[in-house]
Write a protein that binds this DNA or RNA. Structure first.
Lengths: 152, 152
DNA sequence: AGGCCAGTTGCAAACGATTTGCATTTGCAA
DNA sequence: TTGCAAATGCAAATCGTTTGCAACTGGCCT
């Protein structure tokens, strides 16, 4: 087999930050399943769950197993490449961790996730933790709602 | 058996609001397992999970089953008597719904839950949802942290 | 006081999401 | 190229929770 481009070349044309190299230097082996999942990660700008990621992966490589998706997502989470969210009433969903911090508004009708950020809220949270004598490790702010019916 | 006090009287001395009557009028049967769980509910000022509630219940009545605890908690939740919280990495935990709205700070070392409320944050959330064109159904704000090491 | 019967129960099995043991592959450093 | 630890696929296990079902029981109705 050719040195770099292996037989089923996984169209790695995406521009983004190079996770493969990052992982490489973190001492993680770049296996075929991980290549596939990383490619999906790079193209991912939504919040899919493990099963959805698995389905996308299978489209590229039949032989990938759901267990490996779970294992890889856990690995990527530990490495800080993805964030895991456990929204109400459903499996955990993942998102690319490259952007900056934000919270989520979940559309109860569609499941769609809208990201937002409020520096004021962040500040208030910090202040509250201070008053209670705590250091915040992380937090979770989720708004669950529905699109406002037209009105006025 | 005497009219009101049945044979194994479940020490219903607590002061609080009378859920039994509330449930009664909601057309729900007051069975023995429900009596026991309601008593526990009244004394409950922490955030126990189903298993913990089950254990407390068994102390009063050997024969109660975990399934009934789950069923009853679901019922009470629907009736608005308790709130269910799914904090990170653990089973759902319940709390008495009588107090006023608050959010939670979870102590990562002990699992202890501290309640807090910030009208400013509530307002900001509302404002954000407005801007995004959504009506908030409910929200979830959880701070995860550890007690601040003395310092200064 | 007794009966009736839908509402409830306990039990065990089913569930959905996620993890894990194990025997088999596979990166990749030497 | 070989060697071996790391990673995989598979199936079985786990955890929290729900559910089917047959047995039981509140509590309204005589």
């Amino acid at each position: 087999m050719a040195a770099k481009g292996n037989k089923n070349d996984v169209s790695l044309q995406a521009e983004g930050r190079d996770y493969e190299t990052e992982l490489q230097s973190a001492g993680v082996r770049i296996t075929r399943p991980r290549q596939v999942i990383l490619t999906i990660l790079k193209e991912m700008n939504d919040h899919p769950d493990a099963m959805e990621i698995f389905k996308r992966a299978v489209r590229v490589d039949e032989s990938i197993s759901l267990a490996t998706v779970y294992r890889t997502m856990k690995l990527l989470e530990q490495l800080g490449a993805v964030h895991r969210h456990s929204f109400e009433g459903g499996p955990a969903r993942f998102e690319n961790a490259d952007g900056d911090h934000h919270d989520h508004l979940i559309d109860l009708d569609t499941g769609k996730v809208i990201e937002f950020h409020s520096e004021s809220i962040e500040r208030l949270q910090q202040q509250i933790a201070d008053e209670l004598g705590y250091d915040i490790e992380h937090h979770r702010l989720e708004l669950y709602g529905r699109k406002r019916k037209k009105k006025n």
